[in-house]
Amino acid sequence: MKFKAYITDHGVNLLEKRFLPALDKMGKTCHLYLTRDHTFFLHNLLNGDGIQSIAQFKKESLFEEYRISSQNDDKIAFSIDLSLLHRALRSILNIYVEFSGHGGGGGVGGVAAASNNRIQIKLVKKLPAHSQQAMPFLTFETKGYKSAVIQDVPISKPLSRADMAELQSVLDTAQEMPRTLVRLKDMNQIEQFVDRMKHVGEVINVSISKYGDLHLQISTSLITLGAEFRKLLVLGEQAAEVLNGGNLSAQTRTQMAIQRGDAMMVQVSVKHFFKSLQCHLAKPDCAFYGISSHGSCLTVIFQFFVPGTRQTDKSISLHCRLPVLDPGSN
């Protein structure tokens, strides 16, 4: 089982500034899953009822000279502590930038490449101090102007063949698309709203209609608080809005749409919903919301544009799946 690569400057930026801060909010540890072509950061896929988040990168968007081999179809997966990973990367980066800066003051850009300084990442087994048993680590290595630095991030034992097969199958299920997706461009608005409404209750009702309404509602015995975003762009199954719907209240409109089969509603935990909004730290350009076909989860898909364009950057993807609460359990 071998993995060795060099992290590109783009990859460093993506991970250090954007994805690791976001993923860290999803949960302390995640599975890092490496295949011949892709790198995945996976939260809560194998265990339980938390929010699932799936971040997927084409290997070229993070690495160069990417080499991986394993007896399991060249796939490797293990769990890793994200805050340790983030700290190790930052530490490596300090030294790396120092060297690059000395080479001409150009920062992380081409100077580093010119000076042939790179950040290497590889899987190793090492004997930790005061231990008889070799442990697996994800190791980062680079050199600075006067020093070199190696950071070993402890990881779990690689997943067994059986666990890996399960991870892959859950991952395949998790890629299933909801039939209707609505696009939210102004993500600040929803973030501010949920940030303020999260004190009010613990369960949030989310309904999504085929004509582009996203309706959030928290309801307790004392208060009902809701927000409705209308006329959003719809992907997938659509329906024409019923005339005069605009005069009705948000609740009535949603109820009618559900009765007609033009909308679906699920209940999710406010905590999970708020967590999913933390993905904004990864700086997506917009978000799509959808409910899976049997109402089993709420899916939020974040879209990233190729910088400076309105074209989807297909080398990066990030989406969350929020488990639906059993309506009877309240």
């Binding site: 608005q189 015995s221 208060i223 927000a227 006329k231 605009g246």
Partner: peptide
């Protein structure tokens, strides 16, 4: 705004 609305009902 017509396209985004926040509402509340306080008991």
């Amino acid at each position: 705004s017509l396209d985004a609305c926040i509402y509340a009902e306080v008991r």
